[in-house]
Design a protein around this nucleic acid. Sequence first.
DNA 1: TTCTATAGTTCTAAAATTGAACTGTCAATG
DNA 2: CATTGACAGTTCAATTTTAGAACTATAGAA
Lengths: 173, 173
Amino acid sequence: MRWDALEEEPCSVARTIGVIGDRWTLLILRECFLRTRRFEGFQSALGITRHLLAERLKKLVRTGILRRIPYQESPKRHEYILTQKGLDLYPIMMAIVHWGDTHMVDERGRPLLHEHKKCGKVFDPVMVCSECGEPLAAKEVTTRPGPGARPRPDRRPAESEAKPKARKRAAAA
Amino acid sequence: MRWDALEEEPCSVARTIGVIGDRWTLLILRECFLRTRRFEGFQSALGITRHLLAERLKKLVRTGILRRIPYQESPKRHEYILTQKGLDLYPIMMAIVHWGDTHMVDERGRPLLHEHKKCGKVFDPVMVCSECGEPLAAKEVTTRPGPGARPRPDRRPAESEAKPKARKRAAAA
DNA sequence: TTCTATAGTTCTAAAATTGAACTGTCAATG
DNA sequence: CATTGACAGTTCAATTTTAGAACTATAGAA
């Protein structure tokens, strides 16, 4: 599977992964949510190579997750700011943080706490059902095809008729 | 940054990404939540090379996200099943699906709908504050260091002394 | 003039991924 | 009993990505 093909898949997971599903992109997005905005800021916080950083930022701009905005003329300089589409990635980030907080912390405890401005408390994110408000777990959910569904392709190499095995003892003739 | 180093970072995002933050792993996990359990099942659903699939499954088992369970003797065969740690990834998956459903669907609409068994309705996942129950948005949250916090390293190549780059009055002697 | 800050680009070497074939076990088939 | 098919991998060459380092460019400051 070529990676640009991911965005064509009839699957919201695949399409999302096609855009943000690599390690550096996710780390760059973490930085965005921590208010990093500039090239050097990302580079020094992450230790990513400048080459890859430039590449990833370009892709994030192209896909509408970041906007590149000038913050000074001469020399021209730009900042990278999350668009609304980018801000909407927040639940993904929080879900990732929460899983890490639950399963990956060492004896020191969590590196970062989150405070909800509205209620003033340190919180954990909880995923609930939009209809009944109950917390969600995998086992309480079933899936069914939606309007955009297409049959799942079988990607096994299709044992072509045209090419009879004749592997073993290759071309024994 | 070497990738095994990610799991050492004082950051729950980095550590989580170190375990599940690559494209194939995320797609394999999607399949797990869709009830795929066997090697051939993953391979034919995803089109991943057998080499990488074997590698990724091993890592998921090693990190405690999947358990490898025999389902027949002679020849020995195993299935890959989500552990509780793996099932806890559900909110991440749902957050990814939801973002894709919101920002990446084509004119056909969503490929997959989710039904909450408890309330019987097709739902969207909503992330709320554990303390007040209100939906969360990035702008309503502030962060502060937790017990496991450590100062953020600056990873810029450290302008080595050994290399007389004539830095600020470089040791004018 | 030289240095520094910022935001990249270019290059080569190293690492990861792809694609395809190959291995091995056992059951069923002709 | 030799062949085939299902399953779960392993092996290896070729390609693609990524890492690491140096280089380019602009403009203000020392």
